[in-house]
Design a protein around this nucleic acid. Structure first.
Lengths: 119, 119
DNA sequence: CTCTACAGTACTAAATTGCTACCAACCATT
DNA sequence: AATGGTTGGTAGCAATTTAGTACTGTAGAG
């Protein structure tokens, strides 16, 4: 058993190595879930937002979820959270450099959607 | 309000339009969830696999989940399912062209991981 | 004195995901 | 003939995530 399989895809020199070194579970922990990509997309492409704006932009999300997801993203260094000691309270969220580096991935996703799903 | 934000990213002409036309919720329905990206990664970069192989490759997944996710992927045209009428049963799963088109996105993800998360 | 705006928490309900056991069908071994 | 192994899959319940609703605190407007 375990005989070499004839993988038809020739695009990469070491597909198995790629799969091995690119730990999707870890990535999924960072940007997976139902809301994180949507939140990041807004912050990355539209810049800093305060909580209420974000809630309006991310369609359908509840306060509970938004708070929770933002805290998780903050903990993973993908967004920064700035609290202004005002009344009514103001809290601004900004995508970090680490998050901005996801831009290419978003574009790849976008291109895929346009080419493969819109047709 | 709504003053032009200084988004440092200059790669695209209209970031807001991008966000608008790239419906993450729809994309998330197709490739979101805890397992789909992992399953697709295996099928895309390692080629056709049968059920048991997939279960071994996708670390930690249960039969129930694997069956369900594969059925969902099949329904969305991302994998094909071929049943061989043998005993013991053999069922093979293959990434479709639509799924193979995600290769670039996987590489973008991979690059991001290497640059931003491995350091 | 009441109403509004804003970010957030507490608590409950619903949806997803995970776990264990079980099935069918044939083969090889006992 | 009976037993156990193999493979893809299902059923039923437990655990975890995600969703929904109500509520808080503060200051200014009316």
């Amino acid at each position: 058993m375990n005989v070499m399989k004839n993988v038809t895809n020739k695009s990469e020199p070491s597909n198995e190595a790629f799969a091995e070194r690119c730990p999707m579970p870890d990535i999924a922990r960072l940007i997976g879930g139902k809301w994180k990509l949507i939140i990041l997309q807004v912050l990355i492409f539209q810049g800093t937002k305060r909580f209420g704006e974000l809630k309006r932009d991310v369609d359908g999300i509840t306060q509970t979820m938004l708070t929770g997801q933002l805290r998780a993203l903050e903990e993973d260094g993908l967004v920064t959270r700035e609290v202004f000691p005002e009344v009514p309270p103001r809290v601004e969220y900004t995508a970090t450099e680490k998050a901005m580096a996801l831009t290419k991935m978003f574009h790849a996703m976008h291109d895929w959607w346009m080419l493969e799903c819109k047709k």
